[in-house]
Structures are given as structure tokens and as C-alpha cells.
């Protein structure tokens, strides 16, 4: 299991992108701001959980400001934020991404 002990962030507020901030937490907490929240809010949260599970992260607070990003963009940004918060994040295990 990978422990999130510091903060990380990735992405932008530009159209088609997403800005993600993560920080240590006791459990998994997801806060989403999205222009498409009503339509896709649940999908986005499910996607976040999937990424976290694959990277073996059991506790983290994720703040997401979505600007209409595609799934893979959200994935890439979340993974970047996590890798930036992890100590050995500069040598990622590609099979988990």
C-alpha cells in the first residue's frame, strides 16, 4: 500500500483539462467541482476510485475541478498528482498506471 504523506497537484483550469489537488487523509474523500457534475459526477468519482485502487492507495483527499476532461485526462492528472506526492514517484510502476 502506498501512503500519501504530503500534498500533490496536477493539471490546469483550461478547457478539456482538470485541476487536481490531493492531500493526506484518514480515508478516501473526493470533492468534485464540475460543469458536468450532474451528468458525469458519479462516473468521475468511480474513475477516481479505480485509479486509487490500482495504485494501492487507501487513504487520500482528492479535490477535483473538472473543465470537461476526458476520462484519460482525469486519469493522467490524478496519477501525476499522486506520483508527485509519493517519495519514489519519479520512478513509476507503469503496470499500475
Amino acid at each position: 500500500m502506498a501512503d500519501i504523506t504530503s500534498c500533490g497537484h496536477a493539471g490546469t483550469l483550461e478547457s478539456s483539462d482538470v485541476l487536481i489537488h490531493i492531500e493526506p487523509s484518514q480515508d478516501i474523500e473526493i470533492n468534485l467541482i464540475s460543469s458536468v457534475e450532474e451528468l458525469y459526477g458519479d462516473d468521475i468519482k468511480a474513475l477516481v476510485l479505480e485509479v486509487l485502487e490500482k495504485m494501492n492507495i487507501k487513504a487520500v483527499k482528492v479535490d477535483i475541478n473538472d473543465k470537461g476532461a476526458l476520462d484519460y485526462v482525469i486519469k493522467a492528472r490524478l496519477q501525476t498528482a499522486i506520483l508527485r506526492a509519493l517519495e519514489d514517484g519519479d520512478k513509476p510502476d507503469w503496470s499500475l498506471l
Partner: peptide
Amino acid sequence: KDSARLMVFHALQH
């Protein structure tokens, strides 16, 4: 560099 690499990594597989 890191974020662009991951973005391209996923785009290529899309």
C-alpha cells in the same frame, strides 16, 4: 515533464 509524459501515455492508448 512528468504530467505531459503521463498524458501522452494515456492518449496513445485511447
